[in-house]
Write a protein that binds this DNA or RNA. Structure first.
Lengths: 203, 203
DNA sequence: GTCTATAACCCGATAGAC
DNA sequence: GTCTATCGGGTTATAGAC
């Protein structure tokens, strides 16, 4: 095999794998781990039944890879924004808007993350990955809230609980946005962030 | 058959049905509709495999009955509190605390409601029931927010969007409480309701 | 009313041809 | 690399004995 052929083959392999992952994200998101059949995935990807096993060892394997992508993406977004410049409030607002924009286009990953945290049927490895990244993400959020309190922008409260409150609210709102996609300009980001900042005269 | 026997039989039937519904709530909540096997339910209820079909026509049937209970309970709680006495803020606070108390003891129904709204594998009838009650519940919440605005307690904003915001936040927080049951006094109800009320001097 | 046994079907994963 | 055919195991629902 010449290098030329090798390279072409690699491109085909990458393309097929991506095809299967995208199909998997859609059907796992819509139907859950147990409710998804291999035939659903290959049907969505328009590939034959057997071919999926040339790219993944098992159904569990596909799910784990998708869950990992979901959690890493979320974690990296949080880390980058918290480490970036701007006041704590500006960063919190930027993070919120970034997450809304992201989930609007790839809601399936949100649903996969949700399942990984609620269903006992998902592969144990996916649940372990979730726990790991959830903990790390919470640490970054905690730091953001602590900074906001030190600088006087945020109200005083246990920073970890504020971080939990923030992620709770975000989950709830993203979920509603997925349920009612026709709702535009929901929610007002400034409004939901009022929970965390000091009261001030209304204009 | 004497009436005496009939009555005893009816008691047995009711008890078994309740047993199966409770087992079903647990395993459907934990494993999802597709991930739950009949053997999981009867195993949890400690009854034999075949017996479940003397009480329910099908697996779908059990799920529909559980989903109906979940949505009706939620709807009735909202309706009763909104119709009760007290200022809008007092009613909103009472509703929030009531829902937290309720989901703390029967979180499985929350998970069943969640799945019914996100998974395409659940029986279509359950999804229809969800939509119906969600719409009705939203109307009552909308009314509560409109009253709060008219009386000057709540900030001005589209009452329907405030109702959506409230239910989003509640979903997110209940979810977090299920994920971290060891967290006590999370969240501070007064804090989350700050979103909806006018800013005022902090004590 | 309760149980065990089984029918009828479907799924994940593999084998092997092209 | 891609496909069809098939194996082995497991699932819902029913039948029939006690």
């Amino acid at each position: 095999m010449s290098p030329r052929i090798d390279e072409q083959n690699q491109q085909i392999r990458d393309a097929r794998k991506q095809q299967l992952l995208e199909a998997g994200a859609k059907v796992f998101g819509e139907r859950g781990y147990a409710g998804t059949k291999i035939s659903d995935i290959v049907g969505e990807a328009k590939l034959s039944h057997g071919l999926i096993y040339h790219y993944f060892a098992s159904k569990e394997d596909i799910y784990i890879e998708l869950a990992r992508t979901a959690f890493i993406t979320s974690y990296e977004t949080i880390r980058e924004v918290v480490e970036s410049g701007g006041s704590p409030y500006e960063r919190l607002k930027a993070l919120t808007e970034g997450i809304f924009a992201h989930t609007a286009e790839s809601g399936y990953f949100f649903l996969i993350a949700l399942q990984t945290n609620t269903s006992k049927t998902v592969p144990a490895e996916a649940t372990a990955i979730s726990r790991e990244y959830a903990q790390q993400s919470m640490r970054w959020l905690e730091r953001l809230f602590r900074e906001g309190q030190e600088q006087g922008e945020f109200i005083d409260a246990d920073p970890l609980k504020q971080a939990l409150m923030y992620s709770s609210m975000l989950n709830g709102v993203v979920f509603t946005r997925l349920t009612y996609p026709e709702l535009e300009d929901f929610p007002q980001v400034d409004q939901i962030l009022r929970i965390f900042v000091h009261a001030r005269a209304e204009e």
